[in-house]
């Protein structure tokens, strides 16, 4: 899915400007790191793309969807095409890891058996097969993050929005998750990943968009976490 943001500004109340005049084009199938300090607007940008927030000004188009004009009945269709890995996981506490993933599939029309089979597959991909029957409270932060990733990719989304997906993972697991995200991206899924993980950005070089105080200050193909002094 292609993303086109033109002059997007998001303010909260009168004083807080989370994003200001953001122009961003992401072609279908691209992989983009969103970097920048805490409070720079990365999460706001992802939440706009997930249609949790509406831009105060400007246009946000994702594929055929104009996010400002999207009707309520179309929001769920849009969200089925978009996977989101939340910073705070947002897993359902009273369901096992397997059920957390399976219910998303059932919610979009899969049968119970299809949902369980597919949930098992994606949990295996993120290395959570052995712990699939455990509940979120029984999992570590990293494990919960992996379940959250499994849930977001279970539906084969066309656009994957990841908010700090490796934030709670050890370097080895973070690398494995990164490989997984790259393979999902290689299959044609557009991927935006907000991260503070300098090692990953530098090791797996992709397009880097840097935000500061709600503005895009750098947009670099195959960039590094910090400004590449060589360029």
């Amino acid at each position: 899915m292609e993303i086109r943001m033109a002059g997007v500004t998001k303010t909260f109340g009168e004083d807080i400007t989370a994003l200001e005049d953001v122009f961003l084009n992401v072609p279908k199938g691209d992989f983009v790191y969103l970097v920048g300090p805490t409070g720079s607007g990365k999460t706001t940008l992802l939440r706009i793309l997930n249609r949790e927030l509406l831009p105060t000004r400007g246009q946000a188009l994702v594929g055929e969807y104009n996010l400002r004009k999207l009707r309520r009945t179309r929001v769920c269709h849009y969200r089925r095409a978009v996977g989101m890995v939340f910073q705070d996981y947002r897993l359902l506490e009273d369901r096992s890891a397997l059920e957390n993933v399976a219910f998303v599939l059932e919610a979009v029309g899969a049968s119970r058996k299809e949902a369980i089979d597919r949930a098992g597959e994606v949990l295996d991909c993120v290395g959570m097969w052995r712990r699939r029957f455990l509940f979120p409270r029984e999992l570590s932060g990293g494990e919960q993050q992996r379940v959250s990733i499994a849930r977001s990719i279970a539906n084969d989304p066309l656009l994957l929005l990841c908010d700090e997906p490796t934030g709670n993972l050890d370097p080895q697991t973070a690398g494995e998750i990164m490989q997984l995200l790259l393979s999902i991206n290689a299959s044609g899924t557009t991927l935006l990943m907000a991260t503070h993980n300098r090692y990953l950005v530098d090791a797996y070089r992709q397009r880097v968009v840097e935000l500061k105080m709600g503005r895009i200050v750098r947009d670099q193909e195959r960039g590094r976490y910090e400004i590449d002094e060589e360029l």
Partner: peptide
């Protein structure tokens, strides 16, 4: 509340929720 919000965030139809 949280369960409903998560279901809607992952694309469940309002009727289904």
């Amino acid at each position: 509340k949280q369960e409903i919000e998560v279901m809607l965030l992952v694309g469940a139809l309002p009727g289904f929720v």
